[in-house]
Design a protein around this nucleic acid. Sequence first.
DNA 1: TATGAATGAGCATTCATTCAT
DNA 2: CATGAATGAATGCTCATTCAT
Lengths: 223, 223, 223, 223
Amino acid sequence: MGAVRTRRMPRAVRERQMLDAAVQIFGWRGCTAASMDETAELVGVFKPLVHLYLNSKEALFTACIRREAAALTEAVRAGVHPGVPADRQLWEALRAFFRHTARHPEGWAVLHLQARTHGEPFAAEIVAMRAEIVEFVTRLILVAAREAHHDPGPPERAVAGLAEALAGAAGSLADWANATPGVSARQAAATLMNFAWAGLGDLMEDRPWTPPADDPTAPTALT
Amino acid sequence: MGAVRTRRMPRAVRERQMLDAAVQIFGWRGCTAASMDETAELVGVFKPLVHLYLNSKEALFTACIRREAAALTEAVRAGVHPGVPADRQLWEALRAFFRHTARHPEGWAVLHLQARTHGEPFAAEIVAMRAEIVEFVTRLILVAAREAHHDPGPPERAVAGLAEALAGAAGSLADWANATPGVSARQAAATLMNFAWAGLGDLMEDRPWTPPADDPTAPTALT
Amino acid sequence: MGAVRTRRMPRAVRERQMLDAAVQIFGWRGCTAASMDETAELVGVFKPLVHLYLNSKEALFTACIRREAAALTEAVRAGVHPGVPADRQLWEALRAFFRHTARHPEGWAVLHLQARTHGEPFAAEIVAMRAEIVEFVTRLILVAAREAHHDPGPPERAVAGLAEALAGAAGSLADWANATPGVSARQAAATLMNFAWAGLGDLMEDRPWTPPADDPTAPTALT
Amino acid sequence: MGAVRTRRMPRAVRERQMLDAAVQIFGWRGCTAASMDETAELVGVFKPLVHLYLNSKEALFTACIRREAAALTEAVRAGVHPGVPADRQLWEALRAFFRHTARHPEGWAVLHLQARTHGEPFAAEIVAMRAEIVEFVTRLILVAAREAHHDPGPPERAVAGLAEALAGAAGSLADWANATPGVSARQAAATLMNFAWAGLGDLMEDRPWTPPADDPTAPTALT
DNA sequence: TATGAATGAGCATTCATTCAT
DNA sequence: CATGAATGAATGCTCATTCAT
């Protein structure tokens, strides 16, 4: 594991190396189980230097989360062409998302797995990032509704739930794509579009799936 | 915290108390950050007794995961009436799922948040549980496809992806429902059905959403 | 150094041993320079046990200060017979003081040397103890003034300064007696009485030493 | 804190700055708790330079003690006019002492609080300084005895004890004056003279306070 | 059935100190 | 004259685990 010991690097370089290493370690083990020694060793440096540059384990963890969150949102944002139709924008966003998570699995693990399981300071970062993405998606959905001439569109709470569901599905598919050899980012994105778009469309068209009455033996609305 | 110190309980009762306590603690802090002392204190017992009954922290964590996973799958299974149509079965399964996660938030946290962030022995348990549920859903989808006379139905990999997406969306919505006051299990289930069923239906009907050609400026299939 | 390793002592006994050892170590090195390991080793026990029983180094240090301060004030108080004349009471108090500091040199070092050099929480304990003793002495002086029929006695600030001086002289003489072989507690007490009593008496009698005018070449009042 | 970063100073100047800073830091925290970084930062310089000029923390601490001790003894010596009567000399010495400790509280803290609480090398410096002052005072006392024609004067050991007591009282009063707003150096000196001179005088005059016989119920010699 | 006593191992963090530039 | 990079050693503290009772 331990990298070659390289001497006398400029601080900026070392800091990037440390963040890279920390993302690996934190992605694998989580913040609590990871040790500063592991990170230091992976960089090929001794522990005090990590503390000197990144101050504390919490600070290091936070820095990892921030960097990876910024990279992910930036990748999604950069993948989208603002001028194209809403479904196309969603498709592009999803492809960019799955491409990024496939290329940075440990960073994705830090965000999706580890950051949420530790106390508020960290989970809040994720909530913020997720909110940003969810808001982006929500806007797309509303725009799509407007494009289909259905003002004022679906109620906000319903959209909030849908965006949550979409985000959750996307996260799950990212893990699935990473764990299943042969599944490309494109396929993951297509799966999610297939899964979601028609449902969204039906909702926009005011043809929602109707839950049956609460009597468990009653016939369903769809049959 | 710290329960009243109760003396001389039968082992079976104590073990259940310990698992209950451990689920709380593990659900909040995660396996690594949790301490055996906390669990013991919550039960009102001393640490060596926890070791005597549950052997080790890892064993205790595993036992928690197993119990909660079994409870969740059992709850879903028990909520479904085998004779009714497929969409109805899915609806029932989702309602049971959200009902259970709402009633056992710490157990759900153990399964959804904590068990996946620790090494293989634990994540494998979750993978198994998830596979069971996914398989159940997949079967429902295939049955629905047969009911709609579309043999042989969609390709298996596509269905696997859809089931993953559905499971991810469900997990996310469970967290969302738990964190958002005023969202009932029924609403969460309806949101997910709305989100998913039409998409699934379209897929069954061989009307999938078609990804555009890779030229990012090409018009999309849906517009 | 390290004591014989004795197994399985009752907690109360171990705690006393730990305080004894800690007083030695802290008295020699001071709080910062002392290590928990040293204390543990001196007791013949491992470090975690010290933490288990006394919580933290700060808590241990505080406990030492409190115990030694209580022991010293108690020794002084117990040495005095309330019914006898004031000079006699002062004499008894001083003898008890020097006897105690001679018998517990490390405890005295903790109080006189170490506790005052660390932050407020500790210094405050010493200030409190010192205030108690100084107040006791002040009262004696005022009583002596009344006994000599000199109402209302000397001004309070002057007495405060005198008590400070007396306390400082006593502390210094305690160190001197401990460091100089052949100097008994009795001798130290007599030295201080000789040093102080006549001065106090003169003050009571309204015959203070008069500082000369500020001209440094002026003749002094005493010549 | 943190001074402005000033570049390229002559070594002698830098060394003085470092000693100034170190006296502050050591006076506040003590040798062990102080860090070289603090000192360096206070000077506006980086740590290796402090090592380059002052070699080690111990050396720096020693240098502080030596400088402050020399300054204090010099101040006392300079305040005294050799030709004047003994009590006047003592008065002048005390005034100079309290003036100096009031103007250099951190230096005084280093000498009175910190230097004595660390191992032998440092305490020895203080012992030496104290011995110098004590010897000076002792000589004054003996001279005063001769001036009063009482050869051969009091026994040396008694005088040694008295000088110790005087030094201790002086130290205590210096702290008291520094900590009590409104108490001037002059007042502190007067307090000590009042406290001590008459006692010394009585001793010279062969009218010592007589300790009572060891029977605690016996009447005292003074009543 | 349950606990008090004790420990071994690991970990974050700090800091004096060195060396190359 | 001065600093950036780096480390070795120590230290407070936590915690799972064991054992005797």
